[in-house]
Amino acid sequence: MKLTRKDFLRVLAGSAVAVGAGTLVHAVGSANDKESAGSTVGKKRWGMAVDLRKCREEKGCDLCSRACHRTHNVPQIPDRAHEVKWLWNERHDKVFPFQQNDYTRQALGETVPILCNHCTNPACVRVCPTQATWKRTDGVVMMDYHRCIGCRYCMAACPYGSRSFNYVDPRPYLGTPNPDFPTRTTGVVEKCNFCEERLADGKQPACVEACPRNAMVFGDLNDGNSPIRQLLSGRYAVQRQPELGCGPSIFYLV
């Protein structure tokens, strides 16, 4: 059989498609690699309880937020549209929508410190197309800024508004950066990392350490004897919008 130039080109194109498809199938097959799931960290579930009564008594205090942002080189961008925030104060009625009538003290401008909820069933992790965000076995929802493609699907998925995108280069807004922690680059999403770099050194999160009233208690929710569990068993605590099924690990003592 004589092979014409056209036939040859067709076969060539066909083989290219076949090779491409093979690569894809192989890639899908290996999707379940142990990389993101397999972690050497023990069976912990890190969580935090915030005592809003103490916060209320220190109206206007933002030491936790400052400590967090300084530690992690979070830029202070004046343009509201491009803001980056890991831990910040928000009005009570915005944090707990539809939770109180118009006449409570909370409706009158009290603020609540909010951060990533490090959910047990995180929507952001479910939607991320590259596993740039994933949940560690100790409950910390991690971000890999090397892998993030900046599609912002996680921002659409997070029902708590905990994620920020670097719309502009953050470095000019940093002042003197903390040399022990990287900055971020334009085009990636970032959020609170529960101070995983400090946890690895056996330290408490920076916000917890910065609070003069010890309003934030951090610990292992799976350990019945941990201070956080003691606290939660003794006081009435709420999570943000638990009905969404995400399972936040941040509790607010009201």
């Binding site: 939607v127 590259t130 493609i149």
Partner: peptide, 25 residues
């Protein structure tokens, strides 16, 4: 989709780390 990406140079990460639980995949 491409012009919406913050890190377009990393677009192939979607293929390198295929994630069946993401609808974007």
């Amino acid at each position: 989709i491409f012009v919406d990406m913050g890190q377009p140079a990393r677009v192939l990460n979607v293929l390198l780390y295929p994630t069946p639980h993401s609808m974007m995949f």
